[in-house]
Design a protein around this nucleic acid. Structure first.
Lengths: 222, 222, 222, 222
DNA sequence: CACTAAGCGAGACGGTACGTCAAGTCTTGCA
DNA sequence: TGCAAGACTTGACGTACCGTCTCGCTTAGTG
């Protein structure tokens, strides 16, 4: 956990309970799912975790940080990218992976809220980047390197371009999925993921035609 | 304003002050820019607008709705799409238009916050859609119809596909710009907009190569 | 009540509830009697008075001031000195009057506590003086002036001496009764009051002899 | 110290540090003087005494008892009555001795506070009596027995009367001095002590006249 | 022109959550 | 076992904001 103290100075006194840490994070996720971001209170979390409010504040500066770390735990356990053997399928896999997270009520209700809070709090922004965003970006980078190894994508000419392209692709994938799920409030199902993957691979001009060639079936929907 | 009462029943009594409406919305934007979403209070808005707190609650159900309407006013005055004569340029225009809004502190700090609130409040979600999202989407639709008129994009085979494609493209554009600006917290400058437009038009495979052909200059950045 | 606002400026807005004031003071006395000074909490008072905690803090800066005003109300309704026709009887009357107050559990538990708090808070000290001590002192002054009118005590030669003597006599009477009741924790009954009055009138040397001349009876005790 | 463990059972394990006891009491007095009763915390005492909080609780049941014992230490080192050769002077000596203690900030701020606490705690009341009040009363008794030995006061006819008178005189002296110092918040100087002694010896009627005969000078004040 | 039905500013009100603090207990490791 | 360090539970603290209310006043139309 990012708030863990350095163990350089051999700490004295009673050590912090690791079980409490786990209980608090779990309670936060549960309360978030039930009550939503603005309904979440520190006292409620404390009660559910069977822990005193002071224990919360000893470990996290406030609600924002606690929620970021709790969301991070969800990302940590859910994000993975099985090698599906092809770029298009890997792409759909990333999209599905992101979308699955955004279906969780605790993520739906809290992710954008902490992003909004972070606009006025650089430390929180860094925490979000380290704990959440970078974890997602790693998935995208993994997919690209696999595609390049397979020869589906050309290798980057130089590291700077590589980074710039990676950032762009990541913003496109993550941003689009988030917008679909949270703003447009539409399901991210297999059909949509396929459409999105096709658009990403072939660009706008290829969009309509290909769709026409492979009409969807009802069973295509999740 | 979307909360305006129906004029069917010819209202009696003293009419509401239109000046107050304007002052409140302006005060909300200003306070949002200075204090951020979570620092914004109804009392503060009332004070700045030189209005009583009761006047606020007489017109808006709460903070969420007041902010959505205030944000909507900003979108209304800023969003436009001058015809630049080509799809790529129109695309860049839409991106720049969205990005310009996301540079405003009141939008940065509040847009994602109300989206987050809306996850648990369908009425608020509808309000956001009507007042903000549909206004953005209209821009994207306008760009597509222009491109189709010019022959740069094929006409849609049927209305359902047209709607599905429009939704997808809109989520890609709006989502990507928002993610770049608010989550990645990087500037949406001309160079990035050009990269993004190229990706949208030609797809992933075209990305690296084209970039290599047209190396950027320093003056290209905003 | 000493915190009442001046009515010079014609007050606007909703007026404060006088009933709330009364309920709060009554609740404070009751809670003090049941829970003692250190057991008294603002929340408990608020609950008993069926009033919000904020209402308490809107009217009193804190627990100390609330308690002083509540004690003052008790003093106001209890302190009086019926004219008994003679100095000795008047003296006993004052003693009994003070003692009766000190038998009330809310006074027992709180009077010395606020005095202790006041050692570090001049404003609180002034409040105690105005609301409580001066009320007691007025009784002593009344007794003296009656005695002087009857010729039982000589008139004071000058105002300064008069004030100094009054202060001294007051400290003797009030201090002694308080010490007997709260520190020695012994009852202030009729017999003790008579002993004390005799000591005050005749001094130490007269103490033992007179007691011997007028042996007490069981009915003499309160 | 009244909390000292019995040495009957030959105690095992590491013995308690006597130095810690002294450091704690000293730290309590110092903290009391600086922070006042309500500002005093166990943690602060522990820090100042360079001792763990647990050590405090191992030796005293709580804050009240710790403070009583610390005040008792002050009384123990300060209270004494040099034989001045006459009743009036001895009386003034007792008054001055009490007053000197009440000038100490730790006593001013804490004495009445523990008395107030004691109204709801018989054990604390007993502790105060044994550790503080009886020590003061011994001084008064000593003064009386000297006066009786000198013939300035008549011997008591019987032990019961002796005790009753002693209690009364003690309440008068201690109560008056405390009231002057803490409630009226006026200095207990030589002039006031002389006035008080005169009143005690001759009673109320003698008060005004004698004062008139011996007008004070400025140098008479402390 | 008076009546009347709102609107309006000021501020009290009952609530709820905040983040802090103190009391007193418990846990660890060292002496 | 004593002790230092410090985590822990409990619960009060005082503040801030919420959304509602009460009051005295103003401002249109309507009768």
């Amino acid at each position: 956990m990012s708030h863990a103290p350095f163990r350089d100075a051999p700490r004295t006194g009673r050590p912090r309970s690791a079980a409490a840490d786990r209980a608090i994070v779990a309670a936060t996720r549960q309360a978030l799912a039930e009550l939503g971001w603005s309904g979440l209170t520190m006292a409620e979390v404390a009660t559910r975790a069977k822990v005193a409010k002071t224990t919360l504040y000893r470990r996290w500066p406030g609600k924002n940080e606690l929620v970021v770390d709790s969301l991070a735990a969800v990302f940590e356990e859910h994000l993975e990218l099985p090698d599906s053997g092809g770029l298009a399928a890997d792409l759909a896999g990333v999209v599905r992976s992101f979308a699955a997270l955004l279906e969780l009520p605790e993520i739906r209700t809290a992710l954008m809220a902490v992003v909004a809070e972070a606009t006025r709090d650089p430390a929180l922004r860094a925490r979000i980047r380290d704990a959440i965003v970078d974890r997602q970006k790693a998935l995208v980078l993994l997919g690209r390197s696999r595609a390049q190894a397979r020869g589906e994508l050309p290798p980057e000419p130089d590291p700077e371009t590589a980074a710039r392209n990676a950032d762009l692709i990541f913003d496109v994938i993550a941003g689009t999925v988030v917008h679909r799920a949270l703003v447009s409030n539409e399901p991210v199902d297999g059909a949509w993921a396929a459409d999105f993957a096709r658009l990403l691979l072939t660009g706008l001009t290829g969009l309509t035609g290909v769709t026409g060639l492979a009409p969807r079936t009802a069973t295509d929907r999740r």
